[in-house]
Design a protein around this nucleic acid. Structure first.
Lengths: 290, 290
DNA sequence: CGTTCAATTGACATTCTTCAAATCGCGTGG
DNA sequence: CCACGCGATTTGAAGAATGTCAATTGAACG
């Protein structure tokens, strides 16, 4: 399985939330101290390994690091020693630009691999901080070193992860460059929701772990625009927002906005073609069936 | 060596130009039919290989495909069979979005690896088209397959390429999301220039191989904005533009704009801190020393 | 030398940002 | 248990950068 989705919905595969309420039917808890018993095995690099490889992998990995909210996993310029699999909570990746501003690269959720953009270089190109109490597994970078020829499956797994993440980054890049505020926010929400669903969490009602300004930074919008757009969605009865608590009432409507389609309340047929940069959407009154 | 630069200048490592005039001292020509003799060996995956591996690699690779201008290397949804190293010319990667618009992912120049975002999936997530007469080497995807355990160095090389490209994509994403039109264009030009320099081409005077609307799409700007910003740069005597021909007169000034710094003509000292989204720059008259 | 399309330029529309102020929540302490 | 205070969020109003539409210019090429 991929860490990052290949779903056609979203260009926001690093968007993340916190994960308190699990659906009863599919409860997952982080493993204690073995890759073999880990609930994230299927999404971790361990998935790719043969049984003999996994033993070695298991002993090389440092299991279940705990992080407090706001604690850093690593900082920019730190020497690269490991990559990490998120077990619980959520991790924000950001970078300080030359002029001192913070650029948010992505948010990572349980089962996802952090810091693979640091492979092959000496120091981390970005910082990783926990947005809430979190835990991670630490995978020594030496496992991927040039010399380490004994685990080809591990390498192949990493390659797939990287390729996936690259695709996601490409999509997110397009998103930031070309979409309206409404489209970006809609994609963000839809993506978060889909990822929750994939992990068997509640996906129609959840708690965002990051601030409005984090979201804005991530989407290339001002904090105020994020806030305003949330309320607009609420006025359209697409969602209910209360601080970081989100409830989605009309997923189809949101997905429609995702495409830059503001006709979802009247007539689904009018789709526009040929616009290199699709134009946004005008706020309307507030009268849509849930 | 990396296909994509790790230079601190640019978030635009897929920006590309055509490469007619080589500097006399460092003339490079694409190899004919051997990786060992290829001038791009140092930037190709072949670099990572041991001598026994390179033999195999050499026989597996299909050397020197030729492409006419406008000819496709592959199209979105095509089955993934190979990745490609650009030997000459330039390749544009783009994607058709759900509403029919074209999203440009990047531009690739000689020595760079194309289609590594297709590894691990069945069909290409994007299309690749030659912007000018070009040539590529074709590397069968089977070399990276799960079963192919005999070339760990090749895998490691690929991993590094992927990680690099991921970092570049992250940077480009930030660029599209947060920077002003002037910053984006300045970064674009500086990046193109640095990449030319790296490959021993003339870097103060070159020919862009893509149209204004391609640049705009790639940077998340309207074609007209690209055009206007080019003329603004020209009025500032930073560059000379004549259609696709670019001459850079004041690299420092361009790099200053890159940082969102509009003070480069007066006082380099005034740098701003603390702005999450640095604010753009006002057009001024036209009186800067070359 | 004319045709054609890309690029430029102008004028205007619009989204989004910015600046500012008001509210809201929530933790703390009385 | 309620008042207080601080940060996060929301909301308002205004301005600015960029997009859109439209007309013009200019090159390249047959």
């Amino acid at each position: 399985m991929q860490l990052q989705s290949e779903s056609n919905t979203g260009n926001l595969d690093h968007a993340v939330v916190s994960f308190p309420p699990l659906r009863e039917s599919a409860r997952k808890l982080p493993s204690q101290h073995s890759c073999m018993a880990c609930t994230h095995k299927s999404s971790c690099l361990a998935q790719e390994l043969r049984s003999d490889e996994i033993d070695y992998f298991n002993t090389a990995v440092i299991h279940s690091h705990r992080l407090n909210s706001g604690e850093h996993l690593y900082r920019m310029w730190d020497p690269v020693r490991s990559v990490f699999t998120v077990l619980s909570g959520s991790i924000k990746i950001y970078r300080l630009s030359e002029n001192g501003s913070e650029d948010i690269i992505g948010f990572y959720q349980p089962g996802e691999l952090v810091a693979i953009d640091a492979i092959g270089i000496d120091t981390h190109p970005s910082s990783a901080v926990a947005l809430e109490p979190s835990s991670v597994c630490e995978i020594p970078i030496s496992l991927f070193s040039k010399q380490s020829e004994q685990m080809p499956h591990l390498q192949y797994g990493l390659i797939r992860q990287l390729s996936n993440q690259l695709r996601n980054e490409e999509r997110h890049s397009v998103l930031r460059g070309q979409k309206s505020a409404e489209q970006r926010l809609a994609m963000f929400l839809v993506n978060v929701s889909k990822r929750l669903k994939r992990n068997a969490y509640r996906y129609d009602e959840f708690h965002l772990s990051m601030s409005r300004s984090d979201i804005g930074n991530y989407l290339g919008l001002a904090m105020e625009t994020v806030s305003r757009t949330f309320t607009r969605f609420q006025n359209l009865t697409l969602i209910t927002v209360h601080r970081k608590q989100i409830t989605i009432h009309n997923m189809d409507g949101l997905e429609s906005l995702t495409l830059g389609n503001d006709e979802f309340k009247k007539d689904e047929l009018s789709v526009q073609f040929g616009h290199t940069i699709p134009r946004p959407v005008q706020p309307i009154g507030a009268s849509i069936a849930i």
